[in-house]
Amino acid sequence: MNLLIRLLITAGIVMLLAHFLPGVAVSGLAAAIIVAIVLALLNAIVKPILVILTIPITILTLGLFLFVINACIILLADKFIDGFGVDGFWTALLFSILLSISQSIAYSFLKEGKKN
């Protein structure tokens, strides 16, 4: 149940960011839900492999290279999903940063609701 709520929250954030960010397009709610599912799968499967392979450069950049990995995950999701489009690397980087911040805020409200 918690996973479903998180996916729906992420889909809503994707829709919201696509509305406000130029260069990001989502064809509808169904596409946003698919984007949320694909991003969850890519973050669970591909991202750990990329993080391990890029440990030296991540250490040299004090962790800032993880932003590049997140942008690559967004661009990879763009290639897999027809109803989702990102114009370029810098747009994907901005989208991934805003998505991460928005998810952190939304998930913190979800945790506060559990405590009460």
Rank of each mutant, 00 (worst) to 15 (best):
L62M: 15
L76P: 13
G83A: 06
W90P: 01
C72M: 15
Q103K: 13
L64K: 05
I55D: 06
A77L: 09
A106I: 09
G12S: 02
P48T: 02
T54L: 14
V38H: 08
K111D: 09
P48W: 03
V38D: 12
A30G: 14
C72F: 15
V46W: 03
G113A: 07
L29Y: 15
A106V: 09
T58Y: 08
L62F: 15
L50G: 09
G113S: 07
L50F: 11
E112V: 12
K114Y: 12
R6W: 04
S104M: 10
L99T: 01
L16Q: 03
V14Y: 00
I57N: 03
A32V: 03
K115G: 06
I37C: 06
P22Q: 14
W90Y: 15
A77Q: 04
M15P: 05
A30R: 13
A106C: 09
P56W: 07
N116L: 12
L75W: 09
I81V: 10
T91R: 07
L62R: 02
D82N: 12
K47Y: 04
T91D: 05
A31T: 15
G28Y: 01
V35Q: 05
A25G: 13
F80Y: 14
P22S: 11
L16S: 05
V14Q: 00
V14C: 01
I74F: 04
I105Q: 01
Y107R: 01
L41E: 03
I9M: 07
I52N: 10
P48C: 03
A71R: 05
G88A: 07
A44L: 15
T54Q: 07
D87M: 06
V38I: 15
L62N: 05
G85R: 13
S108P: 08
Q103A: 10
F67I: 14
N70E: 12
I55C: 01
D78R: 00
L42C: 01
G88L: 04
L8F: 12
L66T: 14
L4E: 09
A106W: 07
L62P: 04
A77E: 07
V24D: 02
T54D: 05
L4C: 04
R6N: 02
I13D: 06
G85S: 14
L4V: 13
L16G: 10
L76A: 14
V51A: 11
I52G: 11
A77C: 05
D87Q: 11
L50P: 00
K115H: 07
A25N: 14
V24M: 03
I13A: 01
S102R: 10
I81N: 00
L21N: 04
F80K: 03
I69M: 10
L76M: 14
V51P: 06
L50W: 08
P48E: 02
I52Y: 13
I74E: 00
S27L: 08
L8S: 11
N116F: 10
I69N: 09
T54A: 15
I13S: 03
A32Q: 03
G88T: 02
F109T: 00
I97L: 14
L76F: 07
